[in-house]
């Protein structure tokens, strides 16, 4: 499968990945509406982590042996046959947070809207290139 590669040496910490991810996963898909008109605001599913001079953007790795999937009691967390991405079926999710407890990278969040759905990277379902990669100005993220 294609994966998002992270090159921390190129990351400049601009957070354009976060902004584009948030807009992509907002209801309107429009930047101003997403930030000003939608309450509560969507969450970016990629997060820039920073310490001193170092920074990188981190999102779900869609692990081969994904503990979030193994520990999901409803089967809401599943692997997409086509892209091999680990996705959350929001209709099945009961918000038990077993996935959050299981993720060694800490990249699953509680959806603010409902507090009942796990929010994570979905590789921008259907997009040829995920928006975080497409909008990275310094090639700190690559999809290959």
């Amino acid at each position: 499968m294609k994966r998002i590669r992270i090159h921390e040496e190129y990351c400049i910490g601009c957070r354009l990945c976060e902004i584009n991810c948030l807009v992509k996963h907002s209801r309107s898909g429009k930047i101003i509406k997403a930030f000003r008109g939608e309450e509560p605001r969507s969450l970016p599913r990629v997060r820039v982590e920073e310490e001193g001079y170092l920074s990188f953007a981190l999102q779900c790795r869609h692990c081969d042996d994904a503990p979030c999937l193994e520990n999901c009691p409803t089967g809401a967390m599943y692997r997409d046959e086509e892209t091999q991405a680990v996705l959350c079926d929001e209709d099945k999710c009961i918000g038990c947070w077993m996935c959050i407890m299981s993720c060694p990278l800490g990249v699953i969040q509680r959806e603010r809207k409902t507090k009942k759905v796990a929010s994570k990277c979905d590789l921008c379902r259907g997009e040829e290139i995920p928006v975080c990669v497409k909008n990275c100005p310094n090639e700190a993220l690559a999809y290959e």
Binding site: I6, E49, L54, R61
Partner: peptide
């Protein structure tokens, strides 16, 4: 803002490489 970045690089990379990615 605790996260993966605060962890020793070796551990962080081992974890992420596990899924064939290099940080």
């Amino acid at each position: 803002d605790f996260g993966m970045i605060n962890l020793p690089a070796e551990y962080r990379k081992h974890l992420v490489e596990g899924a064939s990615i290099e940080v």
